[in-house]
Design a protein around this nucleic acid. Structure first.
Lengths: 198, 198
DNA sequence: GTCTATAGTGCGATAGAC
DNA sequence: GTCTATCGCACTATAGAC
């Protein structure tokens, strides 16, 4: 009999998601989650800083993927070319096999402002780190911040479509489509800036 | 002697900001804030849902300003022209007299992830409502979401500069500059989309 | 593993404003 | 009388300290 089985984190995450889906986030206590996998409340807090964090990847693999992709982009690439290639790479993290889990997870988050806050914090951290990686490539602070903002906006819109009911296409395909639509929206931007407005 | 002085909300907000600046957000208890203005903890929670909310405008006036400005834009305006005019209008909310208070508030938020989460939630709500207002003008869902994302990104970058140490220019001036930089960044977007990437 | 501070909720009582 | 701001008390769960 093993004293502690491996994959404790993962089992806590799975149990938490199940309970959050079944009875709601607020109606679920940390003690319930811990007992569901044969542990105590105290152990839960050793693995996760708080009750929300259990729905998020403590290792931030997505962020690491984005950063590696930014670093790997060709030296002469523009800021938006760089983030476009980062989005391509990041899409590999969300294969078809993860889509059902992502949908369940998102339904819980959508129902709880407290969880939305945490998700937004993670996305903001991602945006900041992408901007930082762009700056390390010699891109100016403003351009880096704006390109990173565009990157996360496109990712967010595309991800929302990826988990939409009935959606079958890959995240990469959807991202390319959304990036194209961003091109359409931004097409008149030079004119807007030159012309001024009321 | 009046039992209830007016402006209870505002006095709680001022006292809370003072205490958060002096001793930190986490080191300040709700009871301290309440007692600082002669009230009890229970009354604090009558006015604000939680300890963080006291730093935010419960009336969401900024959001209302954005929405009014979007509705007031000329009928034929493109999505980005519309958000550009919304940014112009919204800038009126942040006059020079509010800059010192905004700086104090931001220094507290910058030091506390829990407060950053709340700020991000407010910004996300703002973005969503701008997207919704754009859709009401007949703009497609995707274009509306992307234009709203650009709007909030520009606002965020510009606001950060507005409260930067030594900054003197108005928020509207900075926003125009940032919008111009977004034009530069987006200039090559059509080429990126057409050419694809590794 | 226990112990505690405190955030936040629910219900009810009080009392001034009108 | 109604309406509403305030207070009091009991209570739970989170989260951190020891």
């Amino acid at each position: 009999m093993v004293r502690w089985e491996p994959g404790t984190r993962e089992r806590l995450q799975a149990a938490a998601l199940d309970l959050y889906v079944e009875q709601g986030f607020e109606q679920t206590t940390v003690e319930e989650i811990a007992r569901a996998v044969g542990l105590t409340e105290r152990t839960f807090f050793r693995h996760f800083a708080d009750k929300r964090e259990v729905l998020f990847d403590p290792q931030n693999r997505l962020q690491q993927a984005f950063l590696d992709a930014v670093d790997a982009a060709p030296a002469g690439a523009t800021p938006l070319e760089t983030v476009a290639s980062a989005l391509e790479t990041a899409a590999a993290f969300f294969g078809d096999e993860r889509r059902p889990w992502s949908r369940r997870r998102q339904s819980v988050i959508a129902a709880n402002p407290a969880l939305q806050e945490r998700e937004l914090l993670k996305m903001a951290a991602l945006e900041t780190s992408v901007a930082h990686a762009l700056r390390a490539r010699g891109i100016g602070e403003r351009a880096a911040a704006l390109a990173a903002g565009a990157c996360i906006t496109v990712f967010g819109v595309a991800f929302g479509q990826w988990i939409a009911e009935g959606e079958q296409r890959s995240l990469a395909d959807i991202q390319r489509e959304v990036m194209g639509e961003l091109g359409s929206v931004a097409a008149g931007l030079a004119a807007v800036v030159a012309g001024g407005e009321g």
